[in-house]
């Protein structure tokens, strides 16, 4: 199973409460650029929310130090002590959910903690769960090919 932040663009009004909650929690200041969740205005009162779907795991496969892993709830986490700050994960993320702040050494991403869900006034966010699919398993299959390469 995969725990993830389910996004309802149709309910979002762009109040930025979620980004404030997130950046305060993790970066100790209200700065949307440091939020793990992004609110992108599309115009005409519409918004597009971006947060890691915890599913594609391209970043897990790409990380050269295995600093990015998947926990028992299916959430993709970064171990900052192993991260070398190369930003390869940022480059391979297909939806720009892997974030970094210029000059700071490690990237960050949504870990589906649910803090923003509690503060969103419009129910545009919820913690969801979904089944593992082929994409979410791939990173393990890639690594398995090389394991035990010697006898």
């Amino acid at each position: 199973m995969i725990k993830y932040l389910k996004l309802h663009d149709d309910k979002c009004v762009g109040c930025m409460t979620c980004t404030a909650t997130c950046s305060r929690l993790y970066a100790k200041l209200d700065n949307p650029a440091k939020s793990r969740l992004q609110v992108n205005p599309l115009g005409a009162g519409k918004f597009h929310l971006i947060a890691c779907d915890q599913e594609c795991r391209k970043c897990v496969a790409e990380c050269p130090t295995q600093a990015i892993s998947v926990n028992s709830q299916g959430v993709v986490l970064i171990n900052k002590s192993l991260c070398v700050g190369c930003l390869a994960c940022v480059a391979v993320c297909p939806i720009d959910a892997m974030r970094f702040f210029p000059g700071e050494s490690t990237p960050y991403k949504c870990v589906a903690c649910g803090a923003c869900v509690k503060t969103c006034p419009k129910d545009a966010l919820e913690i969801g769960s979904k089944e593992d699919g082929p994409a979410s398993q791939q990173y393990q299959e890639f690594a398995a090919v090389a394991q035990g390469a010697r006898t």
Partner: peptide, 20 residues
């Protein structure tokens, strides 16, 4: 070559040409 591995010879090389 084993595919889809970050086969760089130094961290952060996404060109990753050091295949095996």
């Amino acid at each position: 070559f084993s595919q889809n591995l970050p086969d760089g010879c130094w961290f952060g090389c996404t060109m990753a040409c050091a295949h095996a």
